[in-house]
Design a protein around this nucleic acid. Structure first.
Length: 108
DNA sequence: ATTATGACGGAAG
DNA sequence: GCTTCCGCCATAA
């Protein structure tokens, strides 16, 4: 769970990543759903950029027009990420982590 | 132990 | 682009 939080905290402003990708980077391939749980159970005080995590299709995973859906949309737009009808162009906004940086920062 | 339920992913039609 | 279906896995009932 800590690994997941760490990875998510590394996603830079104006970028997004996916549940599955975060799971992979955390060394937990195939556990996208576990990532969503990890975000849900993350303490508020941690200020984790949970809103930068979307699904592999480039879409928000909350029910359309639900409150969290709208909040996520707003937070992303505030940092320059284009969100249209819950959809984001991954080609343009997906985080491509620098391998060297990862190796140096990850404690595992 | 069995079933249901997700902030998921990928393939198929 | 849809939508459906199935695999995946932790949790709760």
């Amino acid at each position: 769970m800590e690994k997941i939080w760490l990875i998510v905290s590394m996603i830079p402003e104006g970028c997004v990543s996916s549940y599955g990708k975060v799971a992979d980077l955390a060394g937990l391939p195939g556990r996208a759903r576990y990532v969503s749980k990890a975000l849900k159970s993350a303490p508020q005080e941690m200020n984790l950029p949970w809103f930068r995590v979307i699904n592999s299709q480039g879409r928000l995973s909350f029910k359309e027009n639900s409150q969290p859906y709208q909040i996520q949309t707003e937070l992303l737009r505030l940092e320059g990420v284009e969100v249209n009808r819950g959809k984001i162009r991954l080609k343009e906004f997906e985080w491509k982590p620098d391998i060297a940086t990862l190796v140096l920062q990850l404690p595992f």
